[in-house]
Design a protein around this nucleic acid. Structure first.
Lengths: 330, 330
DNA sequence: ATACTGTTTGTAATCGATTACTTTTCACGT
DNA sequence: ACGTGAAAAGTAATCGATTACAAACAGTAT
């Protein structure tokens, strides 16, 4: 395996010059640069990253800690982060915290050990509550989950407003008893809850909510109970893709077709939402954009550590489908 | 930030002793060990990974290169790999090749640069065709995709047999004109094609196949064409989850309900397969097990570089649902 | 020709661990 | 008390780059 001194010898220059050329530093003559590049080619030289990282104290690596890799939302975010990162010659270490605050803390420690340049994190509720940027030796950009109090770069959906619009849509369609099943373990769920509550209140309607862990099974169980209540709610809303999936499963088990027996709506425009029944009305998130924006924010923060904190709020898009076809229309 | 020499001073021993304790080497007195451990606690010492990796020439990192992170199959595999790896104090670098052989090559180079301990790879067809273990300075375990010729550790589904069983199931249900739409860009698709062809031949039936890139859109387009043909095929099979999704979309567009107008079956038991229509008959893959097995294989290979090559074949499970309800039953 | 500037180049220190090698310590048999 | 071998501990070389600093050089003004 060729080392930098081999390249230096081959090119007839010093190791410092080789290093400078490879780092793209100025102050190297064009002739020297060419000879170094040629030597690198000839020897197929690849710098040893461990050595470089040790000396330079930089890793050019960003850590991505997602809450649940099985959630397609985070899959797509990861994809975007990865694309952007590698395009900027950065590495990505992906960690899946599985909605477990302990795992999250573990991975944040790991990021410290790895001396990453920065971290993109979708924090669980406890982590978010305790979150202080100054607790970490690297910049952190929050993604998907952030509240008004937290002072950190972040990229989030306009959760409150999106939930408001989704709820308002159901109300417009003539539904009144609208139940909201939401993941209480994430800031996202809570904010969407807020939007729902506001919309209901604005229209003088009573709320009907159920907080659950953000899993398919929990949502199915909760919806199963609701389905046994009489009078039946007129509509069901889920606070994210996994929960929505649970709702669909529960309605199927309870043999309640939508929208005939009960209307349905939720968050996340997953591939299957338009295929079940006559399609499910959802708020679509610009997932790829979210990941992209988060990476951009992080890269900028790494370049300019003291620039002011920024928050990017992206708008969710309402996609009306059969599941919320109005009572009037029937 | 505390360094090893600080720990040594605090503990009143030499750096060598500290290093030995932390590496779990024998030849350290119990007293010394205790003092070192205490000092580590006091100073909150964390070894510098860059320095360690430079000197020891080991990274304890495994690279995972998946074909398409959006495919839930690979998501689940990643999860398993990650779990297993961290449990064995290994890091994971996840890369998404997006079914692009060039990206794949790029990432394999990157793995070399990172000096990873080993790689788990789901190769594209061109990469698999050229694949030689000796081309890489690290052990490689293939996952999901591997052919009989390739001499490497691998974990795969019994693709041929599973496809045979799925096809045979449709035949048993009374279908004859069974079309198979498959991803020709992966070894998996080809092997499943083989199983389908064998099953059809065994029953004296004519094959009806369409090779497509393994994407939802390509599959939808292909199925859209088939849906316009007369006579209509009696059943449609897709070679993986993404393709199956494309088929469902196409049938919906063509307003062909299943199984009434046309039967449907495929691979990958994704969350939504039991929710659309009366459920879709699929071969379920033990995705988590596949990732787990691959990681185990890799860790063993790292520990014993010269042990003989092993291939783990896992069995797919047929899950019968409404989409393949027999003609006889109608 | 000389001094002065700015650019290019080279030498050697450095990053923080691991580990080869040497020295010390200790238990034990004679 | 002493020699012996094993176990424990320490010293210093080492991994392979980056970079601080010094030296050489070229170009220009005096």
């Amino acid at each position: 395996m060729a080392q930098i001194k081999d390249v230096a010898r081959e090119a007839g220059v010093s190791v410092a010059t080789v290093s400078r050329v490879l780092a793209g530093h100025s102050g190297v003559s064009e002739t020297a640069r060419q000879r170094v590049l040629a030597a690198v080619q000839v020897l197929d030289y690849r710098p040893d990253l461990a050595a470089r990282r040790l000396r330079s104290r930089r890793t050019d690596t960003i850590g991505l800690i997602v809450s649940d890799i099985r959630n397609p939302f985070f899959t797509e975010v990861s994809r975007a982060v990865e694309d952007m990162a590698y395009r900027n010659r950065m590495r990505v270490i992906l960690c899946n915290a599985d909605e477990d605050p302990e795992k999250e803390a573990l991975y944040l420690d790991l990021m410290r050990d790895e001396n990453v340049s920065g971290v993109i994190l979708s924090p669980s509720l406890p982590t978010l509550a305790r979150f202080r940027l100054s607790d970490y030796p690297f910049p952190v950009v929050l993604v998907d989950r952030c509240d008004r109090e937290t002072h950190a770069d972040a990229v989030v959906l306009d959760n409150v407003d999106s939930a408001y619009r989704l709820t308002a849509h159901l109300i417009e369609q003539g539904y009144r008893r609208i139940a909201f099943i939401y993941g209480a373990t994430s800031a996202t769920g809570r904010q969407r809850h807020e939007g729902y509550v506001t919309a209901m209140a604005t229209h003088g309607l009573e709320t009907l909510t159920q907080a659950v862990p953000a899993t398919v099974d929990a949502a199915r169980a909760a919806a199963g109970e609701l389905a046994r209540e009489r009078p039946l709610p007129e509509a069901l809303m889920g606070s994210n893709g996994l929960i929505l999936l649970g709702l669909v499963e529960a309605l199927r088990e309870a043999q309640l077709p939508f929208p005939e027996q009960i209307a349905l709506a939720g968050f996340d425009d997953l591939p299957w939402t338009r295929l079940v029944g006559s399609g499910i009305t959802v708020i679509a998130q610009p997932t790829y954009d979210i990941g992209q924006a988060a990476t951009e924010l992080l890269l900028q923060r790494i370049a300019h550590p003291s620039q002011s904190v920024r928050r990017v709020v992206l708008r969710g898009e309402l996609r009306e489908r059969g599941s919320s076809t109005g009572r009037s229309a029937k």
